[in-house]
Design a protein around this nucleic acid. Structure first.
Lengths: 177, 177
DNA sequence: GTTTGCATGTAAACGGTTACATGATTGG
DNA sequence: CCAATCATGTAACCGTTTACATGCAAAC
């Protein structure tokens, strides 16, 4: 999903500035499956404005740039829904971790063990984040995204735990004294 | 992981042409976590050759381009392993499907149901592929990658199955006759 | 006193995909 | 007869990231 569409989607939930959009999809279920940086968000919002899919109102501020608050227009809403009715691009899960594990036979056992342990810690942190956001009432969609994320991270962690012993770090040849 | 590194990795397992490299990581565990097209592989191999990380020998063929068989050099092997010892980039799972589901409240129920059903079918196909490749003896790494993939797809399928009823397609308002 | 948050934006660089060009052979 | 397999490569395009520019205020 491109940044344009992501911005449009977030704006269906309420008005926001570019800055807020960035933060919004670092929380609450968006986080694990989409991302984008300022360098792509601001140009995207400008283009969407030109095309009439969003509108802006500038709120003046002292001593920092004007807040530019974006709203989705009816045309924008239509375009957004249309984009979700077209065939979606496929998911892609790019995993440097799994790639590295494919070559575990070329690496010191200690490195492989560290790789697994790091990945485990990360997955635990992400899972914890998903469980945290149980406070606010969520839309059906957010609940789905949360559940989906949780299911995946839990499965990863189970698998990682089951495999970990195979790569047990005999502390790299210091043992024999 | 960039295409360069992926090529290097595959060549640690044996010599191959650019064409073969492409096909190799469409099989056996690589498939779900890395990908690249010819348009990036061929230039990558040329650059790796310039840098002395791989070597080429051309095998003449009648009536089609010479096969250029690439081998990894000792320098290439060292560089590859070094790249796996450095901190790895994080995984990124981009999911247009989950993104669309976040906005399920804006879509017709029939569309949401179709989305889930399509995604389920895809996941089943990928899982089947992983289970198929149980014939050849696998390296520890390939076994790990396979298991990891299986764990994820199974968890997804379970979750999808559990959620499916919530989006049951009352066939979009034709019901009342 | 340094980091974080607020707030926007541009330019260069990067990495990659898509489409194109070429063309014989084999299998359905 | 058409599609797929084999086989390499280039060029245009695309979307995105990274780094830069600017700068105050509040929190730690």
């Amino acid at each position: 999903m491109d940044v344009r569409t992501i911005c449009l989607g977030i704006l269906t939930r309420g008005d926001a500035t570019g800055y807020e959009i960035k933060n919004l999809f670092q929380h609450d279920g968006y986080q694990h499956f989409v991302e984008a940086s300022f360098g792509s968000i601001y140009p995207a919002l400008n283009r969407l404005t030109e095309e009439g899919l969003v509108s802006v109102r500038a709120e003046a501020q002292e001593k920092r740039p004007d807040r530019k608050v974006y709203s989705i227009t009816p045309a924008g809403r239509t375009a957004f829904i249309a984009s979700l009715l077209k065939p979606l691009p496929e998911d892609r899960h790019r995993s440097p971790f799994v790639f590295a594990m494919l070559f575990s036979d070329l690496l010191p056992k200690s490195r492989v063990a560290a790789l697994i342990d790091q990945y485990t810690t990360q997955a635990q942190a992400k899972l914890a984040q998903l469980n945290e956001s149980n406070t606010q009432p969520k839309s059906a969609g957010e609940e789905f995204a949360n559940g989906f994320g949780r299911a995946i991270y839990e499965a990863m962690l189970d698998f990682l735990k089951s495999q970990r012993p195979k790569f047990n770090a005999e502390p790299d040849a210091i043992a024999a004294e």
